[in-house]
Simulated assay, not measured.
Amino acid sequence: MEDKELVEKLKQDESKNFAFNQLVRKYQQQLYWHIRKMVIDHDDADDLIQEVFIKVYKKIDSFREDAQLYTWIYRIATNECLTFLNKKRKRVFLPIVDLEGVLSKVLDSSPHISGDEVQLKLQKALLKLPDKQRLVFNMKYFDDMKYEDISGITGTSVGALKASYHHATKKIEEFLKMDLNH
């Protein structure tokens, strides 16, 4: 089902549940990995994806079709991730560096993380980035999104996104070089 048709059916009471199931099937995996790359922990990502879909279900009537549906959903998921990470820092009273250490340990011990040593090092390098830089890097590098699409999701200009991506790649390169030298 095309997004336009999904939106129409989501906004009608008699077809809302069916359309919602279709929507979840269509976007669940992509969104899960988008969220997972930000929060690292499988259980947290699972909880957040449920929150995202609940918000989509409740707020579909406020969706103005001036943006693409997936852009709107990604924006909700992105905001949920950033809010979650901020709450987690405050709840655990950890500065950014300590949260990075906690998430790094999750990477080391999680049965849900597979990958070779290089992939693990890249994930640890990403944890050193500020949340928004990590978000831009994930969307551009892993999800192969266009800057225009990322701009629609984050509400950030294309120029700022390009700069953010450039800074992120430089920081990752520096981290990986330092890691190789140790």
Rank of each mutant, 00 (worst) to 15 (best):
M1D: 09
M1G: 11
E2Y: 11
V7C: 13
Q12W: 03
D13S: 09
E14I: 05
K16C: 00
N17Y: 07
N21R: 13
Q22N: 05
Q28I: 13
L31Y: 04
Y32F: 15
W33H: 12
R36S: 07
D44A: 11
A45L: 04
D47C: 02
Q50E: 09
I54C: 03
Y57V: 10
K58E: 15
K59V: 04
I60D: 02
F63E: 07
E65V: 09
Q68V: 05
Q68S: 10
Q68F: 13
Q68M: 14
L69G: 02
C81I: 01
L82F: 06
T83P: 02
F84H: 14
K88V: 05
K88N: 01
K90H: 08
K90R: 15
F93S: 09
P95T: 03
I96Y: 08
D98L: 08
E100V: 09
L103Q: 10
H112E: 15
S114K: 15
G115F: 11
D116W: 05
V118N: 11
L122Q: 08
A125P: 01
L127S: 08
L129D: 08
R134Y: 06
R134H: 04
L135T: 04
V136G: 00
N138P: 04
M139P: 01
K140W: 01
Y141H: 14
Y147N: 06
E148C: 03
E148V: 12
E148P: 01
D149H: 11
G152L: 12
I153A: 03
G155K: 13
G159P: 01
A160D: 12
L161Y: 09
K162E: 14
K162P: 04
K162I: 13
K162H: 13
H167T: 03
T169I: 00
E173Q: 14
E174Y: 12
E174C: 02
F175M: 02
K177M: 10
L180F: 07
L180Y: 05
